[in-house]
Design a protein around this nucleic acid. Structure first.
Length: 357
RNA sequence: GGAGGUGUGGCCGAGUGGACAAUGGCAGCAGACUGUAAAUCUGCCGGGCUUCGCCCUACCGAGGUUCGAAUCCUCGCGCCUCCA
């Protein structure tokens, strides 16, 4: 899911997002609630009409923002009180209110309000935090109208195995439309391991969504663990910062070595950038601070990620995922386009080899 | 011809006797980014070395004053403004 926090992927039109191969877009309740406001979105015909995105939309609840924005916040049993990053005005989020807001905007998939503790966190604190999230999950579940908006539960539990396993079991009992794994890749030493504990413990007949992850290799690993859905700002943000994902590794297009490079970004890509312009041109535009550089780079990275996911889907259907050694190289993102060693994952660490079915 | 001003590291531009190898910005070289407060942020950026430190060469040029000068004085050179 490409991330369009404010209703659009930065620098990309809905048409371009479609053309890149996106089928669903992620947006954010917190941001839209602050501006333009839930009422405004509702009055303008709902989030699809408002944004022009015709495919499904999943919104994050803002639980992540409460914890990532820093500043003043007060968590109590009822919900969270914190401050707008725009003007400092106080805001109150409750599990029920968050569900209601997302339903009113007409999103296809709503996320429950959760508590996403940063790393490192003591086990006791992680457990207290999880209890609150579980309580909020029950309240969100009760508030959910079970109409056109699906509601997903979220598993937390930081990097503690027993917490994660309990959390998965407890949240699964609540019978949400889908389940998300939150709080991963927030600085913990082995994010992949958390996925290994958690994903298989969630119902296989419901969508499993790994929130905010990640690099292609992380996604590859998680897919092997049974995860179905992903979102990440990385392809879009890195694109804006001049970092491009390719089948040969990561390109930092601002680097001087691309000054005279007439090749396309990725010979195996058919995105608008790769099919028309050279690395040298994108290098030039990027250095010049030209807006179009960000647009082209974003279209490319989005296409790269979406192609990667499409190839994974196809491999799964063919039962050939484990044979696709080419994924390894693509997934590692090693920056070695000119060296002989392309940094292929060692076989022993290849998550696909561990996949039993 | 006269009067005044000005000359700083690739560029712009602070500094006007010691805390100055010299603030900033730009350019340059690299790095980071994971449910987006991000078209952002960080490091390096005269030369050399054993790089928390030391040595050398440095603020137009040449002299000088001083324990000490990018900073003060003299002369020269360049540029700018005004008067003739």
């Amino acid at each position: 899911m490409p991330v369009g926090t404010l209703g659009a992927v930065k620098g990309v039109t809905p048409q371009e997002l479609e053309a890149a191969g996106a089928s669903i877009m992620l947006s954010n309740l917190y941001h839209l609630a602050l501006r333009p406001g839930i009422d405004a979105v509702e009055k303008l015909g709902g989030i699809h009409e408002f944004t022009g995105w015709r495919g499904p939309i999943l919104t994050d609840s803002g639980g992540f923002q409460v914890w990532s924005l820093g500043g003043l916040r007060t968590v109590d049993a009822g919900g969270v009180t914190f401050r707008s990053h725009l003007d400092g005005s106080p805001l109150r989020f409750t599990p029920e209110g968050v569900v209601d807001h997302q339903e009113r905007m007409g999103v296809d998939v709503a996320m429950m309000l959760d508590e996403c503790p940063p790393w490192p966190v003591e086990k006791a604190a992680a457990e207290t935090s999880w209890r609150r999230t579980l309580d909020w999950a029950r309240r969100a579940r009760a508030a959910w109208k079970e109409g056109p908006t699906a509601l997903f539960g979220i598993v937390q539990g930081s990097a503690y195995r027993d917490l994660r396993e309990r959390a998965a079991a407890e949240i699964a009992e609540l019978d949400f439309a889908g389940y998300a794994i939150g709080g991963v890749s927030v600085g913990e030493p082995e994010p992949g391991t958390v996925v290994e504990w958690t994903a298989p413990a969630l119902p296989a007949d419901k969508p499993r969504y790994l929130m905010g992850v990640g690099y292609p290799e992380d996604i590859l690993h998680a897919v092997a663990q049974g995860v179905d859905l992903f979102d990440c700002v990385l392809p879009a943000r890195n694109a804006r910062h001049g970092v491009l994902f390719t089948r040969e590794g990561v390109l930092k297009i601002k680097n001087a070595r691309f000054k005279d490079d007439s090749r396309p970004i990725d010979a195996g890509c058919s995105c608008p950038a790769c099919s028309r312009v050279s690395r040298a041109f994108l290098h030039h535009l990027t250095r010049a601070g030209e807006l179009t550089a960000a647009v082209l780079a974003t279209l490319h990275n989005l296409r790269f990620y979406l192609d990667f996911m499409a190839d994974l889907r196809q491999a799964i259907q063919l039962g050939a995922l484990a044979d696709q050694a080419s994924f390894d190289r693509r997934a590692t993102g090693e920056d070695a386009p000119e060296g002989p060693d392309l940094g292929v994952l060692p076989v022993s660490s290849n998550p696909l080899e561990q996949r039993s079915s």
